[in-house]
Amino acid sequence: MKAVKFILIGILFGIILYKSEAASWYRIYEMFQFRSFHMYGMIGTALATAIIIVQIIKRKQIKDSNGMQIAFQAKDKSITRYLVGGTIFGLGWALSGACPGPMFALIGSGYWTLGIVLIFAILGTWIYGLLRHKLPH
């Protein structure tokens, strides 16, 4: 069953986010103060490993489980949307200490107030959808 596979991948991801302390509000605070190597080491090794994985997939033309070649989409070129959107997200990330992945891991671990953050994150995405045509991209 495909559904079971996705849930299992999610469980693995949730455990990693929690055990790595990436889900800890304190780690995010400390990261934005540039006072510890922990988060940088983690993001850095994740990125280094991911770069190797992407290169191997591209060079060996590895296929996915459906037999389709794994493709990578180029992101649309722009500066405004990434810089402004990124900064807005960064403000929220530092205040709540949670990005969209850890948010769910924390709800699962029993911090239900993250549910409030989630409800308003859904609302924030909705507001973006409504204003999209009026925003510079």
Binding site: G86, C99, P100, I116, G124
Partner: peptide
């Protein structure tokens, strides 16, 4: 913080 995350991302 939720609004900022949802809108910004």
């Amino acid at each position: 913080s939720g609004l900022l995350i949802g809108f910004g991302t």
